[in-house]
Structures are given as C-alpha cells and as structure tokens.
Simulated assay, not measured.
Amino acid sequence: MQRADGDRQRRQELADVSSGHLPRLLPWTTDDGKRCLLSADTEGGFLSRLADDFEAAQLGLGSDMVTEASTVLGNPMATHAEVRYATLRLSECLTDVLRIAESRGLRLSVPDGDEDDDSPAASAEAVG
C-alpha cells in the first residue's frame, strides 16, 4: 500500500511539473508527521484560502507564544516545568513558521534573468 501511495504521489508531482504548476506545501501535516501538498491550478480556491487563514492563525499564535515565553524566561523564579513548556511551545511555533516560509518561498516566481544571481561571479559584480 505504501508503494502505491508513493507511486501515485510521484505521478501527481510529474503531472504538476509538466503543466508548469507546482503543488503548494500546506501549513499542516498528517497525523504521522508527513507533509501535505495541495495540487490545484487555481489560487484562491477553498483549500488555498483555508491554508492562508491557517497560516495567519499559526503566525499569530507564534507571536503570542514569544511574548509568553519572554515573560517566563525573564522570571528568575520560573520553574523547570514552566521553562520546559515554553521551550516546547516555541519549538512547535518555529516549526510552523519554517513550514510557512518554505511554502511561501516555493510559491515565489523567479524573475527572468535572475536565475544565475547566486553564482560567485554575480556576487562579486554586485559587491565591486
């Protein structure tokens, strides 16, 4: 069964690449931690809007957690359990933010002629 799922996913990825459309990395995972991808030709569909809303909620929770963690870490009398809890929540929020950043980065288009800007020669020209 696992091989069939992998084959199906690979065929879908090839179809997406051949059509010029890359799947969107969604801001959540399956119960076993696997990534979720959305293969759709239109932006602004129901699942895309849901993913956008979910990303906004995750970023808001992350911001709130930074504030809470700062309070705990700034308290010299905070217990080990409080510090551990804050650290675990911050780790979860950072994981979410990194997934959102990756998803958004994958959706950015590269302007024509900028593909080679990462080369050492292009970097030297930009500096000198």
Rank of each mutant, 00 (worst) to 15 (best):
T95K: 12
Q58A: 13
G60T: 09
T71Q: 14
M77E: 13
S91E: 13
V66H: 10
L59I: 09
A86N: 02
S39A: 14
T79E: 03
D41K: 08
F46T: 06
T79G: 13
F46M: 08
A86D: 03
M65I: 08
T87C: 10
E68D: 11
A57F: 11
T95F: 03
H80F: 13
H80I: 08
S63Y: 09
A56N: 08
M65K: 10
A57H: 10
F54I: 00
E43G: 04
T67L: 15
F46G: 00
L88V: 11
D52C: 04
A57D: 07
A86L: 03
R49W: 06
S70T: 11
S63C: 08
D41H: 06
T42N: 07
L47R: 08
T95L: 06
D64S: 13
V83M: 10
F46Q: 08
G60I: 01
L50N: 02
T42Q: 12
T95Q: 13
E68Q: 15
L90G: 01
E43N: 06
A57K: 09
S39W: 01
D64T: 09
S70P: 00
A40I: 01
G44S: 07
D64A: 15
R49A: 05
L50T: 04
S48D: 15
F46L: 11
M77L: 11
M77K: 14
F54G: 00
A78V: 02
R89L: 08
A56T: 08
T67I: 13
D52F: 07
C93H: 01
E55M: 15
L61W: 11
G62C: 10
T67Q: 14
L73A: 10
A51S: 13
L94W: 07
L61C: 08
S70C: 11
T79S: 15
D52E: 13
A56Q: 10
V72N: 06
L94T: 08
L47E: 09
L88Q: 14
T42W: 09
A78N: 03
M65W: 10
R49D: 04
L50I: 05
D52P: 00
A56Y: 06
G44M: 06
L73V: 05
V97Y: 04
S39L: 01
P76R: 07
D96T: 01
Y85V: 01
L88Y: 04
L90V: 02
S48W: 12
A81N: 06
V72S: 05
A40R: 05
T87M: 12
L59A: 12
T95R: 14
R49M: 07
G44N: 07
Q58G: 03
M77D: 13
G45V: 05
P76W: 04
S39G: 10
A69T: 03
D64I: 09
A81F: 03
E92M: 09
A40V: 04
T79P: 00
G60E: 12
F46P: 00
D96Y: 08
N75E: 07
G62M: 10
T71R: 15
E82A: 14
S48M: 04
L38Y: 03
L61H: 12
D52A: 14
R84A: 15
L50F: 13
R84F: 07
T79C: 00
E92V: 06
A69W: 09
E43R: 12
E82C: 03
Y85R: 14
G74Y: 06
T87G: 06
R49I: 03
D41C: 02
Y85F: 06
E82K: 12
D52I: 01
S70Y: 05
E43P: 00
A57R: 11
V83L: 11
V97K: 02
A51E: 05
T79M: 01
